[in-house]
């Protein structure tokens, strides 16, 4: 079980930005990882938090329903699952931005898409089942938008751990 007292990225801002309910906060922090692989994992985590199994399950359900959590379960290394990814970027003229973003979002291969402050102002993740699917998807995005796409496939990963305390 990973503990809830992680010191990484300790926030400096005020409490207004945090989850209001301290129990919810403890639950979110405790569920970051290390969920037990045993017959009654919720009971085990609940006990460590001083909750009942039912209460913990109900809280997770509520945190998922209200959007505090986007997911709960195993996080797979999708590349090992046979998937392929790249980070891609486009430079979109401002008047065209919303129209082009909508075209890009329309591709099921586009998982995440962000507007960013740069001449390359549209950044998105392309995910496909196979490596060759990436080039194909990018070619189709270029054809649909009429704009060039720069692709930045990961060459090496130094650290991936999205752990921000609640």
């Amino acid at each position: 079980m990973s503990v809830a007292t992680d010191e990484r990225a300790r926030p400096a801002a005020g409490p207004d930005a945090r989850l209001a309910d301290p129990v919810d906060r403890a639950v979110v922090n405790a569920l970051h990882g290390g969920f037990p692989l045993c017959e009654r994992p919720y009971a085990e985590v609940a006990q460590a938090l001083g909750l009942t199994e039912d209460d913990l399950i109900a809280r997770i359900d509520r945190l998922l329903a209200d959007g505090t959590l986007t997911r709960f379960g195993p996080l797979f290394d999708a590349e090992r699952m046979g998937g392929a990814f790249t980070l891609a970027a486009m430079s979109v003229p401002a008047p065209e931005f919303d129209r082009i973003a909508e075209i890009v979002n329309g591709f099921p291969e586009v998982a995440h898409n962000y507007a960013r402050t740069h001449a390359l102002n549209l950044w998105f993740v392309v995910a496909t089942a196979t490596r060759s699917g990436i080039d194909d998807a990018i070619a189709r995005i270029e054809a649909a938008t009429g704009l060039p796409v720069l692709s930045f496939p990961k060459e090496r990963e130094y650290f991936v751990e999205l752990r921000l305390p609640a």
Binding site: V28, G73, P74, L75, L164
Partner: peptide
């Protein structure tokens, strides 16, 4: 799968915007 890294972790993915990491 956890040992080989096929599963990175088992846990929750927070919406970090909702947690104030805006």
């Amino acid at each position: 799968m956890l040992e080989t890294g096929a599963i990175r972790r088992i846990g929750a993915v927070p919406n970090h915007y909702r947690l104030g990491w805006v």
